Simulated assay, not measured.
Amino acid sequence: MKIDLNSDMGEGFGQWRVADDDSLMDIVSSANIACGFHAGDYAIMDHTVRLAKEKGIGIGAHPGLPDLIGFGRRAMPVSDSDMEAMLACQIGALQGVAARHGHRVTHVSYHAAFGTMANADEARALRLVRVIAALDKELTVFAMTGQPTERAAEKVGLRVHTLFLADRAYTVSGALVPRGQPGAVIHDLDAVRARVRQFLENGSVTTIDGVRFPVKAKSILVHSDTPGSLDIAKAIRAEIDATGAVLTPAHLLAD
């Protein structure tokens, strides 16, 4: 079994850093790089892409809303056309940085409220994936199983990799438990390892209500801004190695 382990990276700003991205690069196979809207800037993007190229890590754009103060987690009253433009701007910026280092953007993974807003409306989801397809038909879209973004991407002919979020709790419907609610973010390393083992062995996750829910996914995501994210990523990687799965960048996974 081949599996991708990806993490959101480059989510600092200026002199501030959110996570130990350099160390995470030794553990993951793909990086979702912030493009300067919810976090990140030109220097951080440049450093992150260069390091990913050196280590053979696949890279993708991690577009968010223009909300540095709220870290892109607050919904904003923006039009669909504005979301289309900001999506194109962010992907294009990372493509430019990648080209400078001889690397290539291979996927797109929406950040926080941007993804929530994209999935709130089928028509909006379709408009946004058409932007992605217009920039590069070879781009893969990361999405949660059963969400409008997954259906929209498939409709326009883009590859889709569904995600398993190892450090987030699920509801019985397969959605994520909203941040701020008890148990929404999982920090216990033994619990994380057990979740990953269950996912790898039988393709399921136990929800916050104790119900086993099937998860069809090709990529495991760990949030770099979660406290202790490096240890969480190490725990996930150890479980991947222990179960015999082969860590593989997302763009090299078969459909």
Rank of each mutant, 00 (worst) to 15 (best):
P77Y: 01
H107D: 06
D80A: 12
A75G: 03
I57K: 13
T248M: 05
A125G: 15
V105I: 14
R130C: 06
A61C: 11
T106W: 00
A120V: 02
E138Y: 02
I91V: 15
Q198E: 13
R193D: 07
C35T: 15
G115T: 04
P63T: 10
A191H: 07
F71H: 10
D26R: 08
A242G: 05
A31T: 01
G228H: 13
T162L: 02
T207V: 11
T145H: 12
I33Y: 00
P63S: 06
M9F: 07
V156N: 08
G157L: 09
H38M: 04
G146H: 07
L165Y: 10
A191D: 11
I186N: 06
R168C: 04
G10E: 10
L68S: 01
I236H: 11
I59H: 09
P249I: 03
G180T: 00
L24I: 13
H107G: 07
D8L: 11
R151E: 12
V211Y: 09
L253T: 07
A31K: 05
V205F: 01
A118M: 11
G183I: 11
R124Q: 04
V18T: 15
G157E: 03
L221T: 14
N119Y: 05
I232V: 14
T106Q: 02
L24Y: 08
A113V: 03
E201P: 00
P214R: 13
V108M: 05
A61D: 12
V205Y: 01
D241P: 05
A31H: 06
A125P: 07
F114L: 05
P214G: 05
N6K: 03
M144L: 15
L139D: 01
Q181W: 04
R168A: 10
A184T: 01
L5G: 09
K53I: 08
S79Q: 06
H161I: 03
T226S: 13
H38Q: 13
G244R: 09
D20Q: 14
G210K: 11
H62V: 09
G174M: 03
A125S: 15
F213M: 14
A19K: 04
A235G: 15
V28G: 08
G183T: 09
E54D: 12
E11T: 05
I69T: 11
E122W: 05
V78N: 01
D167T: 06
A153M: 06
T171L: 14
K216C: 11
Q90V: 01
A118N: 05
P249A: 10
D255W: 06
R237I: 02
D121H: 00
A143V: 12
R195T: 12
M9W: 09
R127D: 15
L68K: 12
F213C: 04
G96I: 03
P178H: 08
R127Y: 03
V105M: 03
G12W: 08
K2V: 05
H111L: 04
H223T: 02
A75P: 00
D46G: 08
D255V: 09
M25F: 13
Q198N: 14
I232R: 03
D167K: 04
N32C: 04
A123K: 12
V129L: 10
Y170F: 13
K155D: 09
E201M: 13
M9T: 14
A169V: 07
A75Q: 09
A242Q: 09
A175I: 00
A133Y: 04
L176A: 10
H38D: 01
R17M: 11
L230K: 04
A93R: 12
P63G: 08
